[in-house]
Design a protein around this nucleic acid. Structure first.
Lengths: 224, 224
DNA sequence: CGTAGTTTTTGAACGTGTTCAAAAATGAGG
DNA sequence: CCTCATTTTTGAACACGTTCAAAAACTACG
């Protein structure tokens, strides 16, 4: 009855071994070049056994995804402690998020394909990705809450989720960004925030605020 | 020397046959359920022969893509002739574009995967998709040019390309839209345009206009 | 220790997109 | 009509992600 409670049990070791081999391979060779057969072989288990622990290859990518997310939070928190300026705080979350992606740019399209796939746990709609999603939405909420500036009450509660989507779009842009060092993506973030700052006063104008609120409600249903 | 000039030559017939079978299957069964083997069999050719005419399965999807694009233009043109109001004209292009997608919603994720794939001709960056891209960018340019309202000169020339990207984002939203009849996507378009209309006067404010211009230049490099 | 039940592991198989060398059909020139 | 180069067609093969029945290892209990 009591077996694999989670500690160093044999099964958990095997699982961790497969996971580690896969993540290393993802980092070194990307998504496409990492095959389940190679992972199984390097982990010293049979192909079928890898599938016993991870139902699909995409579930292995999600292990990487979670690791990247945790690193994102770890990088963002100290920067959030430095300032209470809204724009600077949002910049901190976007920029640290972008920094986590850097090692993967060569293989970004492969991972992108995995993310979009219907049955993928990485899909924004998938239940498997809810915890990771909640974490980054929470990061944006924290960025907003700790700022000295405040947004209209109609807008504020809808912003964290919308910012998460904006972050996803930034990732999309980044994966297509062919400029050296993906400098353009960094500029996009800066410019986008500058624009947001300039637009802030107008968010209180009713004719702007009302459709914006509806818009945020609509995009809020994505991955609700 | 003179052989398959393009008319009813044997080769062109075979190619058309494969194309037609594939497109019908895409419409009826979606991307994933349409296999190259089934297409070849139904077209009465060998598997390898299908690959002689279409280097990848995605190249067959592009044939569908082009057909959808042409239908989009055919649907948009008459509606553009009806009005000279900027917002109404943009709405016409977005709405007719959306209408073309309706039959494919059940399989949208499969097609989405194909579009994002690295080597796919459907990829926004790919040279193969340039003509289709130019067509829809041209459609947006026509919508802007024929409107009685005009945009700041710094913004105007950068808008068609940006609107094409907005259109792509609308397609992305639509593919994740689980509301009945994807009503939410239609509302998103309406609301987005209402917001754009409300924001129009502010586009002339320098502190808004300047970063917006930079932003448009940056996104303009995508699929340049 | 032995037996029954559960968890873990295996290896072969399936269907997929794609590749390729070789065969067949086709067309031009003598 | 024959020859030969080119275009078209074939069928077998490869590697991949994934599935599954059966074997093996393990655990709890008598």
């Amino acid at each position: 009855m009591f077996k694999n409670e989670d500690a160093g049990s044999k099964a958990e070791q095997t699982r961790a071994q497969i996971r580690d081999v896969a993540l290393t391979s993802f980092r070194n060779q990307g998504f496409d070049a990492t095959t389940m057969r190679q992972v199984a072989k390097e982990a010293g288990v049979s192909l079928g056994n890898a599938y016993y622990y991870f139902p699909t290859k995409n579930h292995l990518v999600q292990e990487l995804y979670i690791e990247v997310q945790l690193a994102h939070r770890a990088a963002a928190e100290p920067r959030l402690a430095e300032t209470d300026d809204l724009i600077a705080r949002l910049g901190a979350v976007f920029q640290t998020g972008l920094a986590q992606l850097v090692p993967f740019h060569d293989y970004s399209t492969g991972f992108l394909t995995a993310m979009v796939a219907p049955n993928s746990p990485l899909n924004p709609m998938s239940p498997e990705s809810k915890p990771a999603r909640d974490m980054i939405v929470g990061l944006f909420r924290e960025a907003l809450d700790g700022a000295r500036q405040s947004l209209p009450s109609e807008i504020a509660p809808r912003m964290p989720h919308a910012l998460w989507l904006a972050h996803l779009l930034m990732c999309l842009f980044w994966s297509y960004d062919r400029s050296p060092g993906q400098r353009n993506t960094a500029r996009l973030v800066d410019t986008g925030l500058r624009l947001f700052k300039a637009a802030l006063p107008f968010l209180r104008v009713p004719v702007v605020r009302t459709p914006l609120r509806t818009l945020l409600d609509l995009v809020g249903e994505v991955g609700a």
